[in-house]
Amino acid sequence: MAKEVRSIVITGNGTNCEREVANACRLAGAEVADIVHIAELLAGRVRLDDYHFLNLAGGFLDGDDLGSAKAGANRLRHAPVKGSAESLADQLYRFIEAGKLVMGVCNGFQLMVKMGLLPALDGDYRSQTATLTHNDSGRFEDRWTYLKVDPASPCIYTRGLTGIYLPVRHGEGKFLVREPQVLERIEAAHLAALKYCAADYNAPTMDYPLNPNGSTNAIAGVCDATGRIFGLMPHPEAYVHRTHHPRWTREEDLPEEGMGLWLYRNAVDFIRRELL
């Protein structure tokens, strides 16, 4: 029997994109794409150790009452697992140390940044060095964006890509770094895998609405130095088929496969090649 690529999508406490993410994992070739409520993990009935690909889906964790995904980040960092001496964070750090993959989208990206999983300079996955805050427009942004891929980035999800077109839908999507040296290190290491740009995918832009939130240096997605841990504000799971494209009835030459699926396929291919 062939070994399976096993992906897990965590749900609960306000996520609302878990079905789309699980569907994207399956379409990309993962044999298993389990949607698991975080309560199941905290109860010890499900363990991260049994999976290769952890997905933190978008939504409104705890209503974003303490700021986008802050409460969710604290839950993952501190909540104990019932009947065990370890916390869920212990499982998560072991998952990362095993060379497995983690991707967070929108609320999931916010959670990762606030937990310290990104950008994880010097391999430190516990210290927060950046944040995601309110859009410069002062309102919720729901629009499609062009994203320039950094070809020098270690990000395994964006390998072979030059640009992608994905929707955003968020009120707190502005990637913000307070310390100049942190931003310099992110840029020098090419950890900013995705940046907002114009339709020609040529250069990053700070112009609104091409840059929908005012993110520092137009950063839309960040990975760690290994390229295995990745978060982005745009929603790749929302464009996995041509009918998801906003102009699919008017652009006859659109491929059947949506651009967002490319990120998930790169992840699944990596797991087959390196982890099975």
Score class of each variant (00 low, 15 high):
223 C>P: 04
54 L>R: 06
187 E>C: 10
57 A>N: 08
38 I>M: 15
158 T>K: 00
107 N>M: 08
207 D>R: 02
9 V>N: 02
252 E>Q: 10
28 A>L: 06
173 G>S: 06
267 A>C: 01
22 A>Q: 00
47 R>G: 13
18 E>R: 04
59 G>Y: 05
221 G>T: 09
142 D>I: 02
142 D>S: 13
226 T>C: 12
103 M>Q: 10
57 A>L: 04
264 Y>M: 05
46 V>Q: 14
10 I>H: 04
54 L>I: 10
251 E>N: 06
165 Y>N: 06
184 E>W: 04
32 V>Q: 11
270 F>S: 01
200 D>P: 05
187 E>N: 08
149 V>I: 14
235 H>S: 02
242 R>M: 00
4 E>S: 14
84 S>L: 11
43 A>D: 15
129 T>C: 08
274 E>K: 12
182 V>P: 08
18 E>C: 05
60 F>Q: 01
207 D>N: 02
271 I>A: 03
221 G>P: 07
186 I>E: 07
35 I>V: 15
24 A>H: 07
192 A>L: 03
238 A>Q: 03
127 S>N: 15
63 G>H: 12
96 I>R: 01
123 G>W: 05
200 D>M: 05
105 V>N: 03
241 H>K: 12
8 I>W: 09
167 P>T: 04
218 A>S: 14
184 E>R: 13
44 G>A: 04
238 A>I: 02
42 L>V: 02
155 C>P: 04
42 L>A: 04
142 D>Q: 06
83 G>V: 11
33 A>K: 02
63 G>R: 12
134 H>F: 14
211 N>A: 00
252 E>R: 07
168 V>S: 00
168 V>P: 00
31 E>F: 09
118 L>T: 09
178 R>T: 14
75 R>I: 15
254 L>E: 06
100 K>R: 13
157 Y>L: 15
20 E>Q: 10
93 Y>R: 06
159 R>D: 08
106 C>E: 01
36 V>P: 05
177 V>F: 06
259 M>K: 09
58 G>R: 00
123 G>K: 06
192 A>N: 14
265 R>Y: 13
155 C>H: 07
79 A>I: 12
32 V>P: 09
213 N>R: 01
28 A>W: 11
75 R>T: 14
142 D>C: 13
185 R>P: 08
213 N>H: 06
217 N>L: 10
4 E>V: 09
27 L>C: 03
160 G>P: 01
105 V>L: 03
124 D>R: 03
110 Q>T: 11
48 L>M: 09
251 E>I: 07
222 V>M: 03
173 G>K: 02
224 D>F: 13
159 R>K: 15
67 G>W: 06
94 R>D: 15
197 C>A: 10
264 Y>L: 06
39 A>L: 14
65 D>A: 13
200 D>G: 04
99 G>I: 08
252 E>S: 08
144 W>Q: 01
223 C>Q: 01
193 A>N: 00
128 Q>M: 15
188 A>M: 02
273 R>I: 05
4 E>M: 14
84 S>A: 11
212 P>N: 00
35 I>M: 07
32 V>G: 09
26 R>H: 15
25 C>K: 02
183 L>S: 10
111 L>T: 03
188 A>Y: 10
202 N>S: 14
26 R>D: 10
62 D>V: 10
189 A>V: 11
26 R>T: 13
233 M>Q: 08
119 P>K: 02
30 A>V: 03
83 G>D: 09
13 N>S: 12
223 C>K: 00
122 D>W: 08
40 E>M: 07
174 K>S: 03
